[in-house]
Design a binder for these strands. Structure first.
Lengths: 201, 201
DNA sequence: TATAAACCTGAAGAATCCTTCATCTAATCA
DNA sequence: TGATTAGATGAAGGATTCTTCAGGTTTATA
């Protein structure tokens, strides 16, 4: 799933980036199933041949875009965890959830469109991996904050994370209207806090 | 997205059912993107022509299967709500969540595979509609149990529902291993109860 | 039983799409 | 400047898939 050739000169670096951007645009415009290599190349202003010089196949396009997006989200969680190390659980959770939502909503349309790109097995695996990374740092941070460790915390964090994912997903799939976004920002922290308090009392 | 022709004789009713079942089998075997009408017909033991006599196109196959599945889940929630009308919130939530999980896990593989079928726009719309129905009965039941109504309850239920969805999805996408299933059954009710208590105090 | 209606068949038309490669152009280097 | 490497092109091969329809078979009906 790696690039076939690594850009050396600057013009090709530009090309590679243009293709990635075009992939997103086409994804938004026609959806993942009608996304074709020709269409992406056209939108990027290059020929199909050029596309195949840097992306081995169609899936690699979506894979690359998805990776960037997922990594951003995981990074956001990681940053929030590090930045608020030592804070009380309530505060920690509040910040983490806020960071998560911010990351997801920064480009809401893209986030929503990428759900469709996640069904392909290889992509799904990527999502799992990156999610795991996010949960790990999350587990560490929460464990420290509540002064507990082990399976109990792990289960709780897994549960909380999937709730976060599900809640934001439902908002994104609904088109992320302002009202729902506001409710999400208000309620999701409450949900996470309430659960952790009860589960890790 | 409706059947092109309605079965009249019994043999054709059998055929229609066989095609639906074959759709599930093929979905499990090769995934939604490599699901072809020919393959489904072959698996069902009929010719492609026959398939097109009852399903107008490929999407209709997955749509039909998805509809059955989603309806089952919504029905399960509805039943649980009706059956435990008047029960205290904690009990009500416990029963609803259990019913929801049971419905999702009754055929876990199919549930998981159908996520891929939900990306197609028309299918996504169906999911939204059926989910809405589930949330409505849920809202009514919870509202009665907590003695509150209005937007506050609606938001809370939407949040809770999306958390339920997200949590079960993550388990299903992980292949629904026994450990995760057990954790889900144990923790999801706790999460929902904790949140509702805090949000609708 | 004869006729009509329902049902089934599967080859083939039509449309897409993925991917390659021989060839051309631009940049880098000695 | 000449040679070498990187980058770009896009027509075309190869493959797949969706869907139709003319014609055959089975069931119901009069």
């Amino acid at each position: 799933m790696q690039a076939r050739k690594t850009p050396v000169q600057q013009r090709s670096a530009v090309t590679v980036e243009a293709i990635a951007e075009a992939t997103i645009q086409v994804l938004l415009a026609v959806g993942s199933d009608k996304l074709t290599t020709t269409r992406v190349a056209e939108r990027a202003g290059v020929s199909v041949g050029t596309l195949y010089q840097y992306y081995p196949n169609k899936q690699a396009l979506l894979y690359a875009v998805l990776k960037v997006h997922m990594t951003k989200v995981a990074d956001a969680i990681e940053s929030a965890c590090l930045e608020h190390r030592g804070a009380p659980v309530a505060k920690l959770v509040e910040e983490i959830v806020a960071a998560f939502i911010d990351a997801k909503l920064e480009s809401a349309e893209v986030s929503a469109a990428l759900y469709a790109a996640s069904v392909e097995p290889e992509a799904a695996k990527l999502v799992q991996c990156v999610s795991l990374r996010g949960r790990k740092v999350l587990t560490e941070a929460i464990a420290e904050a509540v002064g507990k460790t082990g399976a109990e915390v792990e289960f709780a964090v897994t549960m909380m994370y999937s709730a976060m994912t599900g809640a934001s997903r439902s908002v994104l799939e609904a088109g992320a209207p302002a009202k729902m976004v506001a409710a999400l920002r208000r309620e999701l922290p409450v949900l996470c806090q309430a659960y952790l308090e009860k589960a890790l009392a």
